[in-house]
Protein backbone atom coordinates (compact mmCIF):
# COMPACT_ATOMS: atom_id res chain seq x y z
CA UNK A 1 0.00 0.00 0.00
CA UNK A 2 1.62 3.23 -1.18
CA UNK A 3 -0.02 6.28 0.35
CA UNK A 4 0.58 9.91 -0.51
CA UNK A 5 -0.58 12.39 2.14
CA UNK A 6 -0.74 16.04 1.12
CA UNK A 7 -0.40 18.52 3.97
CA UNK A 8 -0.80 22.28 4.19
CA UNK A 9 1.25 24.60 6.38
CA UNK A 10 -1.30 27.02 7.85
CA UNK A 11 -1.74 29.48 10.73
CA UNK A 12 -3.08 27.87 13.89
CA UNK A 13 -6.88 27.97 14.21
CA UNK A 14 -6.61 30.48 17.09
CA UNK A 15 -4.35 32.86 15.12
CA UNK A 16 -5.35 36.51 14.89
CA UNK A 17 -5.21 37.44 11.23
CA UNK A 18 -3.71 40.78 10.14
CA UNK A 19 -1.78 41.99 7.11
CA UNK A 20 1.35 43.98 6.26
CA UNK A 21 2.96 45.51 3.15
CA UNK A 22 -0.07 47.56 2.20
CA UNK A 23 -2.40 44.59 2.83
CA UNK A 24 -0.62 42.30 0.37
CA UNK A 25 1.02 39.93 2.87
CA UNK A 26 -0.09 38.06 5.95
CA UNK A 27 1.47 39.47 9.12
CA UNK A 28 3.33 36.38 10.34
CA UNK A 29 4.57 37.98 13.57
CA UNK A 30 3.35 35.91 16.49
CA UNK A 31 1.47 33.47 14.24
CA UNK A 32 2.10 29.83 14.96
CA UNK A 33 2.00 27.44 12.00
CA UNK A 34 0.52 23.96 12.09
CA UNK A 35 -0.26 21.04 9.80
CA UNK A 36 -3.78 21.78 8.50
CA UNK A 37 -6.19 20.13 10.99
CA UNK A 38 -8.01 18.19 8.26
CA UNK A 39 -4.69 17.08 6.75
CA UNK A 40 -3.66 15.90 10.22
CA UNK A 41 -6.70 13.56 10.23
CA UNK A 42 -5.70 12.24 6.79
CA UNK A 43 -2.15 11.62 8.02
CA UNK A 44 -3.37 9.88 11.18
CA UNK A 45 -5.55 7.48 9.15
CA UNK A 46 -2.67 6.84 6.73
CA UNK A 47 -0.44 5.85 9.67
CA UNK A 48 -3.13 3.46 10.97
CA UNK A 49 -3.60 1.90 7.52
CA UNK A 50 0.16 1.44 7.14
CA UNK A 51 0.35 -0.25 10.56
CA UNK A 52 -2.39 -2.64 9.50
CA UNK A 53 -1.54 -3.29 5.87
CA UNK A 54 2.14 -2.42 5.54
CA UNK A 55 3.52 -0.19 2.81
CA UNK A 56 4.80 3.34 2.88
CA UNK A 57 3.66 6.91 3.38
CA UNK A 58 5.05 9.85 1.46
CA UNK A 59 4.09 13.28 2.70
CA UNK A 60 3.80 16.10 0.17
CA UNK A 61 3.63 19.83 0.75
CA UNK A 62 3.41 22.63 -1.77
CA UNK A 63 5.08 25.43 0.14
CA UNK A 64 8.20 27.36 0.94
CA UNK A 65 11.00 26.46 3.37
CA UNK A 66 8.91 27.62 6.34
CA UNK A 67 6.82 24.42 5.85
CA UNK A 68 9.77 22.22 6.82
CA UNK A 69 9.03 22.05 10.57
CA UNK A 70 5.51 20.82 9.81
CA UNK A 71 6.85 18.31 7.26
CA UNK A 72 9.31 17.02 9.89
CA UNK A 73 6.40 16.68 12.30
CA UNK A 74 4.51 14.58 9.74
CA UNK A 75 7.61 12.39 9.37
CA UNK A 76 7.78 12.07 13.16
CA UNK A 77 4.12 11.01 13.25
CA UNK A 78 4.86 8.16 10.86
CA UNK A 79 5.46 9.17 7.23
CA UNK A 80 8.52 7.56 5.62
CA UNK A 81 9.71 10.30 3.31
CA UNK A 82 8.65 13.73 2.11
CA UNK A 83 8.56 15.92 -0.94
CA UNK A 84 8.19 19.68 -0.85
CA UNK A 85 7.33 21.54 -4.02
CA UNK A 86 9.07 24.85 -3.49
CA UNK A 87 6.30 27.36 -4.23
CA UNK A 88 3.73 29.44 -2.40
CA UNK A 89 0.33 27.77 -2.85
CA UNK A 90 -1.97 30.68 -3.67
CA UNK A 91 -4.16 29.10 -6.36
CA UNK A 92 -5.98 25.74 -6.26
CA UNK A 93 -5.30 24.87 -9.91
CA UNK A 94 -1.58 25.57 -9.53
CA UNK A 95 -1.35 23.56 -6.31
CA UNK A 96 -3.33 20.63 -7.74
CA UNK A 97 -1.10 20.55 -10.85
CA UNK A 98 1.98 20.17 -8.62
CA UNK A 99 0.36 17.41 -6.54
CA UNK A 100 -0.85 15.55 -9.64
CA UNK A 101 2.66 15.61 -11.15
CA UNK A 102 4.25 14.12 -7.99
CA UNK A 103 1.41 11.61 -7.61
CA UNK A 104 1.76 10.40 -11.20
CA UNK A 105 5.48 9.77 -10.72
CA UNK A 106 4.98 7.81 -7.50
CA UNK A 107 2.11 5.53 -8.56
CA UNK A 108 0.25 5.72 -5.26
CA UNK A 109 -2.72 3.54 -4.30
CA UNK A 110 -4.23 6.21 -2.12
CA UNK A 111 -3.88 9.98 -2.13
CA UNK A 112 -5.19 11.53 1.06
CA UNK A 113 -5.52 15.17 2.08
CA UNK A 114 -7.76 17.33 4.22
CA UNK A 115 -11.23 18.27 2.97
CA UNK A 116 -9.96 21.85 2.71
CA UNK A 117 -7.04 24.00 3.81
CA UNK A 118 -7.95 26.33 6.66
CA UNK A 119 -6.30 29.35 5.03
CA UNK A 120 -8.29 29.44 1.78
CA UNK A 121 -11.11 26.98 2.61
CA UNK A 122 -11.62 26.19 -1.07
CA UNK A 123 -12.13 22.44 -0.77
CA UNK A 124 -11.40 21.87 -4.45
CA UNK A 125 -7.82 20.54 -4.63
CA UNK A 126 -8.80 16.86 -4.18
CA UNK A 127 -11.31 17.08 -7.03
CA UNK A 128 -8.82 18.82 -9.29
CA UNK A 129 -6.10 16.24 -8.52
CA UNK A 130 -8.51 13.33 -9.10
CA UNK A 131 -9.56 14.64 -12.49
CA UNK A 132 -5.97 15.51 -13.47
CA UNK A 133 -4.97 11.90 -12.70
CA UNK A 134 -8.14 10.45 -14.23
CA UNK A 135 -9.11 8.68 -10.99
CA UNK A 136 -12.12 9.09 -8.67
CA UNK A 137 -12.13 11.62 -5.84
CA UNK A 138 -14.43 11.93 -2.83
CA UNK A 139 -14.83 14.38 0.04
CA UNK A 140 -15.42 14.84 2.93
CA UNK A 141 -14.53 11.30 3.98
CA UNK A 142 -15.09 10.51 7.68
CA UNK A 143 -14.37 6.75 7.73
CA UNK A 144 -11.99 4.70 5.61
CA UNK A 145 -11.03 1.03 5.39
CA UNK A 146 -9.14 -0.85 2.71
CA UNK A 147 -9.98 -4.42 1.71
CA UNK A 148 -7.64 -5.73 -0.97
CA UNK A 149 -7.86 -3.23 -3.80
CA UNK A 150 -11.18 -1.77 -2.67
CA UNK A 151 -11.73 1.23 -0.42
CA UNK A 152 -14.80 1.14 1.79
CA UNK A 153 -15.58 4.57 3.13
CA UNK A 154 -18.20 6.96 4.45
CA UNK A 155 -18.68 10.49 3.23
CA UNK A 156 -20.55 13.24 5.03
CA UNK A 157 -23.56 14.48 3.08
CA UNK A 158 -26.08 17.13 4.05
CA UNK A 159 -27.88 15.88 7.13
CA UNK A 160 -26.09 12.55 7.36
CA UNK A 161 -23.63 10.20 5.69
CA UNK A 162 -23.27 8.00 2.64
CA UNK A 163 -21.38 4.70 2.51
CA UNK A 164 -19.38 3.89 -0.60
CA UNK A 165 -17.06 1.32 -2.15
CA UNK A 166 -14.61 2.15 -4.91
CA UNK A 167 -11.55 0.50 -6.46
CA UNK A 168 -8.10 2.00 -5.78
CA UNK A 169 -6.42 4.29 -6.68
CA UNK A 170 -8.46 7.13 -5.19
CA UNK A 171 -8.10 10.71 -4.02
CA UNK A 172 -9.90 11.40 -0.74
CA UNK A 173 -10.47 14.65 1.16
CA UNK A 174 -10.64 13.71 4.84
CA UNK A 175 -12.19 15.06 8.01
CA UNK A 176 -12.90 13.87 11.54
CA UNK A 177 -13.67 11.30 12.86
CA UNK A 178 -11.64 9.31 10.31
CA UNK A 179 -8.90 8.89 12.95
CA UNK A 180 -7.62 10.49 16.14
CA UNK A 181 -4.84 13.04 15.71
CA UNK A 182 -1.45 11.51 16.51
CA UNK A 183 1.22 13.16 18.62
CA UNK A 184 4.81 12.30 17.64
CA UNK A 185 6.76 10.33 20.23
CA UNK A 186 10.45 10.82 21.03
CA UNK A 187 11.57 7.97 18.80
CA UNK A 188 9.53 9.41 15.94
CA UNK A 189 11.05 12.84 16.42
CA UNK A 190 14.59 11.39 16.43
CA UNK A 191 14.10 9.27 13.31
CA UNK A 192 12.29 12.11 11.47
CA UNK A 193 15.52 14.10 11.42
CA UNK A 194 17.19 11.67 9.05
CA UNK A 195 14.20 10.70 6.89
CA UNK A 196 14.51 12.00 3.32
CA UNK A 197 12.91 15.36 2.48
CA UNK A 198 13.26 16.10 -1.20
CA UNK A 199 12.73 19.67 -2.40
CA UNK A 200 11.66 20.07 -6.03
CA UNK A 201 10.88 23.15 -8.08
CA UNK A 202 7.30 23.61 -9.31
CA UNK A 203 6.26 22.86 -12.86
CA UNK A 204 5.01 25.85 -14.82
CA UNK A 205 1.26 26.48 -14.91
CA UNK A 206 -0.42 29.23 -16.95
CA UNK A 207 -1.58 32.17 -14.85
CA UNK A 208 -5.06 31.14 -13.66
CA UNK A 209 -5.76 33.41 -10.68
CA UNK A 210 -3.59 35.96 -8.90
CA UNK A 211 -4.06 37.17 -5.35
CA UNK A 212 -4.37 40.91 -4.90
CA UNK A 213 -5.18 42.79 -1.74
CA UNK A 214 -6.37 41.44 1.57
CA UNK A 215 -9.01 43.08 3.71
CA UNK A 216 -10.34 42.49 7.20
CA UNK A 217 -14.07 42.43 7.95
CA UNK A 218 -15.60 45.66 9.26
CA UNK A 219 -15.38 45.72 13.07
CA UNK A 220 -18.48 44.50 14.82
CA UNK A 221 -20.56 47.08 16.71
CA UNK A 222 -21.08 46.71 20.45
CA UNK A 223 -23.29 43.86 21.63
CA UNK A 224 -26.68 45.08 22.86
CA UNK A 225 -27.23 43.45 26.23
CA UNK A 226 -30.77 42.53 27.25
CA UNK A 227 -31.43 41.95 30.96
CA UNK A 228 -32.44 38.33 31.62
CA UNK A 229 -35.74 39.36 33.20
CA UNK A 230 -36.70 41.11 29.95
CA UNK A 231 -35.49 38.31 27.63
CA UNK A 232 -38.79 38.43 25.70
CA UNK A 233 -37.91 41.86 24.28
CA UNK A 234 -35.21 40.11 22.21
CA UNK A 235 -37.91 38.75 19.90
CA UNK A 236 -39.40 42.18 19.20
CA UNK A 237 -35.92 43.68 18.68
CA UNK A 238 -35.12 40.94 16.17
CA UNK A 239 -38.35 41.80 14.36
CA UNK A 240 -38.34 45.59 14.39
CA UNK A 241 -34.69 46.59 14.79
CA UNK A 242 -32.60 43.79 13.26
CA UNK A 243 -35.43 42.81 10.86
CA UNK A 244 -34.43 39.16 10.74
CA UNK A 245 -37.71 37.64 11.93
Amino acid sequence: MKILVCITNVPDTTAKISFTDNNTKLNKAGVQYIIGPYDDYALARAVELKEKLGGSITVLNVGEAESDPQIRKALAIGADDAVRVNAEPTDSYFTATQIAAIAKEGGYDLILMGRESIDFNSGVVHGLVGEMLGIPSFSPVMKLDIEGTTAKFAREIEGGKEFLEAPLPLVLGCQEPIAEWKIPNMRGIMTARTKPLKVVEPIAVGDMATLGQYTLPAPKGACKMIPADQAETLISLLKTEAKVL
Partner: peptide, 10 residues
Protein backbone atom coordinates in the same frame (compact mmCIF):
# COMPACT_ATOMS: atom_id res chain seq x y z
CA UNK B 1 -11.53 36.07 9.33
CA UNK B 2 -10.47 38.03 6.20
CA UNK B 3 -11.10 38.60 2.51
CA UNK B 4 -8.85 38.64 -0.54
CA UNK B 5 -9.28 40.01 -4.04
CA UNK B 6 -8.39 37.58 -6.80
CA UNK B 7 -7.71 38.44 -10.42
CA UNK B 8 -9.27 35.54 -12.31
CA UNK B 9 -7.49 34.95 -15.60
CA UNK B 10 -8.55 31.64 -17.18
Amino acid sequence: KAFATVDVKG
